[in-house]
């Protein structure tokens, strides 16, 4: 494709990214660096602040449309702290799956692919995209949560009982390395599309059109990185290497969840997440 076509594709994916993802990297950066003019997030660092912070989780400052779309997680008063945190993270994850799905459908050519292949691409790609999306929300001390209204400290997450305390640490480690690439939101949009359009996912029937779509997005990504980050010629290669780390990270995460399901009898897994993780790795 001509470079003008590739730039148009980049613009289109960037617009879709901003339409579907409420907490962008630039917004997260502003919140984390305290540049939000007194509107700083509520910090959850212990059980007391977790209880107080539930108010912020339930009262999201989102546009009306977003509020209508969301269904609040059911309250379970006498629930154990760890299970309560896990349930809230799961609930937000299920919402994020919907956001990623809408973004995925906006990738030019995606909805013309075989329907079962679309499902496989989404099933395998969605947690990788969500894990990448988490990186800009994190710094070495903690992570933003609930659309940037909450900051949950890394120490608090580490203080949860086993195995819950082990779940977020690998994501913090990935984020620290990923954030060094200093991608911007438009780079992230293209990278998400590249992840989704992976032609090597198990069970795909018609690989060729998927690879063709991915090739075009890869060209758009390469062109964009050269244009926006001319001082970092290795960026494209470095970014593609992250895809291998992501697969490993997600495979470990899914194994962890399967183990949790067996060990924690009181733990309920969200039906959408259950569907995605069933037979995944």
């Amino acid at each position: 494709p001509e470079s003008a076509d590739l730039r148009a594709l980049s613009r289109q994916l960037c617009l879709s990214y901003h339409r579907h993802f409420p907490l962008t990297k630039s917004k997260a950066k502003a919140i984390l660096s305290g540049k939000t003019h007194g509107n700083s997030p509520f910090v959850i660092h212990d059980m007391k602040s977790l209880t107080a912070g539930q108010y912020f989780i339930n009262c999201r400052q989102l546009p009306v449309l977003e509020r209508q779309r969301s269904v609040l997680p059911p309250e379970e008063p006498a629930e154990e702290l760890e299970l309560s945190v896990f349930r809230r993270i799961q609930f937000r994850s299920a919402e994020a799956v919907q956001e990623v799905t809408e973004f995925t459908k906006s990738i030019p050519g995606f909805t013309e692919l075989d329907m079962n292949d679309q499902v496989i691409l989404l099933k395998y790609g969605v947690i990788e995209v969500m894990t990448t999306m988490l990186a800009p929300l994190m710094n070495k001390d903690g992570t933003l949560f609930a659309y940037g209204q909450i900051f949950m400290t890394r120490e608090f997450l580490k203080s949860l009982r086993k195995p819950f305390c082990e779940m977020m640490e690998p994501k913090f480690e990935f984020a620290a390395k990923f954030n060094l690439l200093e991608l911007d939101d438009s780079d992230m949009a293209l990278f998400f599309a590249v992840i989704i359009l992976s032609g090597d996912r198990p069970g795909l029937v018609n690989v060729k059109p998927i690879e063709d779509l991915q090739e075009t997005v890869l060209q758009a990504l390469e062109l964009q990185l050269k244009t926006i980050h001319p001082d970092c010629p290795q960026l494209f290669a470095k970014l593609l290497q992250k895809m291998t780390d992501l697969r490993q990270l997600v495979a470990n995460h899914v194994r962890h969840i399967h183990l949790l399901k067996k060990q924690e009898l009181q733990m309920c897994l969200h039906p959408l997440l259950q569907e995605i993780m069933r037979d995944l790795y």
Partner: peptide
């Protein structure tokens, strides 16, 4: 298809609310 009915529904429906 039965194994992935929510994903199918998410992919086929437009941006209308999805009951989970």
């Amino acid at each position: 298809k039965e194994k992935h009915k929510i994903l199918h529904r998410l992919l086929q429906n437009s941006t209308s609310p999805v009951e989970l």
